[in-house]
Simulated scan of single mutants.
Amino acid sequence: MKRDFGKEYRRDIFKKVGWVILFMLIFFVLGMLIGSGLGGSNPLAVLWPGTWIHMFDFLR
């Protein structure tokens, strides 16, 4: 017996995966904001480009 993995089935799977990725991104950003705020600095500092440049320079 052959299963039919048509466009509808694939679209539903990709939609669910997309929602999971979106929620992961939202919770990642919220976690960074909360962690930065609890650490004693400006919570919005994690959104500044200079912070990300510093982190990527640190990883090199």
Rank of each mutant, 00 (worst) to 15 (best):
M1P: 05
M1Y: 07
M1D: 08
K2S: 13
R3M: 13
R3I: 15
R3L: 15
D4R: 14
D4P: 07
D4H: 14
F5N: 10
F5R: 09
K7G: 09
K7D: 09
Y9K: 10
R10G: 08
R10E: 14
R10Q: 14
R10A: 15
R11W: 11
R11P: 05
R11V: 12
D12G: 07
I13C: 07
I13W: 08
F14I: 15
F14G: 03
F14S: 11
K15M: 15
K15D: 15
K16V: 12
K16Y: 09
V17P: 02
V17H: 03
G18S: 12
G18P: 02
W19C: 04
W19D: 06
W19L: 10
V20K: 03
I21R: 00
I21G: 00
L22T: 11
L22S: 06
L22F: 14
F23V: 07
F23P: 01
M24W: 01
I26A: 10
I26Y: 07
I26W: 08
F27L: 14
F27I: 13
F28C: 03
F28R: 00
F28V: 06
V29R: 05
L30Y: 06
L30I: 13
M32T: 04
M32Y: 05
L33I: 14
L33Q: 00
L33T: 05
L33P: 02
I34F: 06
I34V: 13
I34R: 01
G35Y: 02
G35M: 00
G35N: 01
G35L: 02
G35V: 01
S36H: 03
S36D: 04
S36F: 02
L38Q: 00
L38D: 00
L38Y: 02
G39E: 01
G40P: 01
G40E: 02
S41T: 03
S41C: 01
S41M: 02
N42Y: 04
N42L: 03
N42K: 04
N42I: 04
N42E: 07
N42Q: 05
P43A: 08
P43R: 07
P43F: 09
P43K: 07
L44A: 10
A45S: 14
A45Y: 08
A45D: 10
A45K: 09
V46H: 06
V46R: 02
L47M: 08
L47F: 05
W48Q: 14
W48T: 15
P49A: 12
T51H: 08
H54S: 11
H54G: 07
M55T: 08
F56E: 05
F56H: 05
D57F: 09
D57P: 00
L59N: 03
L59M: 10
L59I: 12
L59A: 09
L59D: 04
R60S: 12
